[in-house]
Amino acid sequence: MPKSKLPAFVSTFCLCYLIWVLLTWRFTAQELIAGAFVSAAVAFTTSSFFIHESAFWLLRPQRFLALAAYFPVFLSELVKANLDVAGRCFGGCRDVNPGIVKVPVGLKSDYGQAMLANSITLTPGTITLDIAEQAGQTWYYIHWIDVKETDREKAGERIKGRLEKGIGRIWE
């Protein structure tokens, strides 16, 4: 294994081992050693796909705090959007105005873009269809169940304004 791959290997190993320990939740030597072997095998084969940027980003305290601060923001957006879509469903499903808008994204990091796209998809009412890069600017194509804005900047602000700020603080 090349030396530059070591941090990626170690961080993937730590994640796998954490999940193993949480799933088994029995702290006997047998379980812990078997978990170490399995995690090492998984990390050896997959770390090059899994880690592209800095491997230990979570160990910086301000990033960890930003991640913790992002969670309630995301949860409040989730509850709001869920109530909205549930209301539409019980209202006979005629109250929809679907469309696909193209919105600009300010995030530079790959992880940040992926996390934002996944957050948008998880929020009911919006699904990220595709990511495109044109002239240095990243765009998302988002299917929106109730198009309120057709202008790109305003629509983007409405769909992902708070989410993008929270994620930007994590991956800056």
Partner: peptide
């Protein structure tokens, strides 16, 4: 597509 939007309500 609107059906998929409704289904995210279930999964979240």
């Amino acid at each position: 597509f609107c059906r998929m939007q409704a289904s995210t309500c279930i999964t979240t």
